[in-house]
Design a protein around this nucleic acid. Structure first.
Lengths: 218, 218
DNA sequence: AATTGACTAAAATACTAATTTAGTCAACAG
DNA sequence: CTGTTGACTAAATTAGTATTTTAGTCAATT
């Protein structure tokens, strides 16, 4: 809902402040008075934008996921081959989240454990949105003949499940490990999944393309 | 450490009782007096076998993982093809754990959150043990020419990471979903990973073998 | 019309007393 | 003599009460 104005709107200001305070204090210790002071507004103003403290957190997470989905859509629209797109999308979905929560010392799961059921439900919803985008990339790959025929929807879900353990949700980024190790691991998963999809005749060519992509990002 | 006697030894009796009480009360509510009563022994006897309440939990988890590793080793020794072995191993590592913790209403992560760092450290150690077994199966597959040349150790770690999100640790079995859906999802991940490893000329034959295996387990 | 902070019900914390529990080990039973 | 046990105790947790804090509201203010 960002306006076209350069200046971020009030919701983003509040969410930015929430990020900073959560990093410092965690969910329970952060008060709405703290938040109002951090933004430089009255407490009532927060409630004009967010129904409750809990809603605020959902909005914060939504914002990160919107960022993920927008980037995934950009990749989908790019001129890369479907295999390259999928590889990029897989890496993006993990590393974007990794970078977004790196400032938190504890895991999201732990920090928001009072809101566990709500957060878990939303997470399922986000996965469904992502799966659609992955299914689209898979369909394109089949159309141009580089992927073997598979159930795109099921395979999309499979790819997400295959990388979900690296998402910084149940484990904090500190518990997960070094960013570079995570990025390498997710890329390796992506490559293995992709090799499992490529039509035999296509494999070498695409493999060289993926290899070149990998060297570029090093 | 189970003896060859039919009667399970004291440690197993204590651990079995721990399972039942954890399912009923959770970690915090379960007392060592409760446990002694449930086994039908004196509290001092528990401390002859386990250093502390915390150690008891580590032993309980160790026992489950020992079961996983033993089954993985059995599969490794079987006469199945390496691809079939890996598929079975992947499914086993998820479903064995799933079945072992199904009696707990909450996730292991939540139930043992007081012991988080210890439990997470052990978990990493278990993954290393498992990775060795997977690497052995990968090596065998390369030796007989059905897998393309890959770094077996790295690929083993990749395969584990690809299925870790389905382990009933951060999410309880109830939060993960229906057993049949989990089993199907892990099998799909396994298949995709395996297709990504098979040498091109080998793929069709192995695929038919895997397909037959899948029908047998339906 | 948009913002705000005083207000209040509900929640959380602090304090103190009482009770419970993990872990120990001397006494007991076989 | 060896293995088991539950009385014991320091530490932890819980219960009860008082105090303080906080999420959320809304009439007053800008």
């Amino acid at each position: 809902m960002r306006s076209n104005f350069v200046k971020p709107d009030m919701e983003d200001l509040i969410l930015d402040a929430t990020d900073r305070l959560l990093a410092r204090y965690g969910y329970r210790k952060m008060t709405m008075d703290d938040l109002a002071a951090e933004v430089g507004i009255g407490k009532g103003t927060i409630y004009l934008h967010f129904r409750s403290k809990e809603d605020l957190i959902y909005a914060l997470i939504d914002r990160v996921i919107r960022g993920v989905l927008e980037r995934l859509q950009q990749i989908l629209r790019s001129i890369s081959s479907p295999a390259e797109k999928i590889r990029e999308m897989i890496v993006l979905r993990v590393m974007y989240r990794f970078d977004s929560v790196q400032i938190f010392p504890e895991s999201l799961s732990e920090m928001f454990r009072d809101l566990r059921s709500g957060v878990l439900q939303r997470r399922e919803d986000y996965f469904k949105e992502e799966a659609k985008l992955f299914a689209a990339a898979l369909k394109e790959g089949q159309r141009v003949g580089i992927f073997r025929p598979v159930d795109c929807s099921a395979t999309a879900n499979t790819m997400l499940a295959a990388t979900n353990s690296l998402l910084p949700f149940h484990l904090s980024t500190h518990e997960l490990g070094k960013r570079s190790d995570i990025e390498r691991m997710v890329a390796q998963i992506a490559d293995l999944l992709l090799y499992g999809l490529l039509q035999p005749g296509v494999k070498s060519k695409e493999r060289r393309k993926l290899r070149r992509k990998r060297r570029q990002s090093a």
